[in-house]
Design a protein around this nucleic acid. Structure first.
Lengths: 213, 213
DNA sequence: GTGGTCGGATAGTGCCGCTAGCCAACGGGA
DNA sequence: TCCCGTTGGCTAGCGGCACTATCCGACCAC
């Protein structure tokens, strides 16, 4: 398969594919001569993943490169690779530790994790980017004056834990060992828009039931 | 309160506040003379909301203007205003109806809503932007070759329905009538990053429990 | 009266995700 | 054998977005 066919089958313009190649999101094809390269089904698959991450998952190109770099890093074990890939995902600003809302948010998040017994999350908490983005989001709610503490978050966390168990069950049944890291990344990034949309639909539905249209 | 104080108390630069005033995200202050305007606590509160929507909720400035416009529209009833505000929220591309993945995704989403008995969502489905973004996200998963049908989504939808019930309970206990629309918008937009972060934390935790660190 | 601050306006900046155009080197069909 | 379309590589440019910097003339406190 050459560039034009890769473009046609993926629906991505040749100019954009060239851009992804330049940015290292897509491995170069097998060079046949100075002016021709051959791409395979793996390239097509990866290209579709890249598009999904960027367009549906709203991940910046630079972040996608980093994440996919970890996915492809054969020098590491599966679990580490996955951890590194997910570690690279979060975006968003650093919390300002001088802000009292941030201090309060951090306290509540730590209390939440303690109450849930999420020991892994607690051990990693000073470092984890996910933990940081949770603190930032909670701090925003507190700053707006909404009471938002560990007791309020706990049931939400339990529900998301149920979601996470389903995610991993899905992973175990639908992905072979070889592709598990890639599938895990896709699942983390692409389930989120689905969850968000279901959340909003559920809000609309429940709101209509309680208060009418 | 004048511009400088509004800036100091909100942590937003005067240049940015001027920009928000220009863009209509913030009502002008009470004009004292040609060169001075007076702002009040309401302006401060709104400014913090705007910042939260844009920075934490990642909503584009133009969308925030539209959403807040609906929140402030006194000519409509509360329910309508809220609906209009939430209607304006979603971002993201239009689905390409010629794409077989999109067709399949739409079919599964419709089956899902029928199975759940979410009649409101079904009635609005051809129009609702949330419905569209769900279709786009599901289509991306299908395009990547993941089996993803109504039966798989249903338990996720039920869980998000439980989340939505909590959201509305929270709204009923923590917001007065007057500020309910504003609170509802804040809740929809700002709970999402919290949920997303909890989701990823739960994934990390569950993954560590199943497979070790 | 004069220095500092105000609101208002305009132009510019930096980043991001492409996109367009050029080039010389092939290579498959007539 | 010729020739024209396509290729990979390269560089430059574009359009949108969220600010940001600067200037200006008006004003007010001292």
């Amino acid at each position: 398969m050459r560039l034009a066919e890769l473009s046609e089958r993926s629906g991505v313009s040749t100019a954009t594919i060239k851009y992804y190649l330049r940015e290292g999101l897509l491995a170069p094809g097998r060079q046949i001569n100075t002016t021709t390269a051959e791409y395979d089904e793996g390239h097509l698959r990866r290209l579709r993943l890249v598009r999904a991450l960027i367009q549906v998952g709203r991940i910046p190109v630079a972040t996608a490169r980093e994440v996919l770099g970890h996915v492809d890093d054969d020098s590491l074990g599966r679990t580490i690779r996955l951890g590194a890939a997910l570690w690279a995902l979060p975006q968003g600003a650093e919390p300002d530790e001088a802000d009292p809302a941030v201090v309060a948010a951090r306290r509540e998040v730590d209390r939440l994790l303690a109450g849930l017994g999420w020991e892994t999350a607690r051990e990693l908490s000073p470092l984890s980017p996910v933990h940081r983005s949770l603190v930032v989001a909670v701090a925003a709610l507190i700053r707006l004056g909404y009471p938002w503490d560990a007791e309020l978050m706990a049931p939400y966390a339990e529900l998301m834990h149920q979601v996470a168990r389903r995610d991993l069950d899905y992973l175990e049944t639908h992905a072979s060992d070889a592709e598990r890291v890639e599938t895990a990344v896709a699942a983390t990034v692409l389930f989120e828009p689905v969850l968000t949309a279901l959340h909003r639909l559920a809000q609309e539905e429940e709101s209509a039931r309680r208060y009418g249209l």
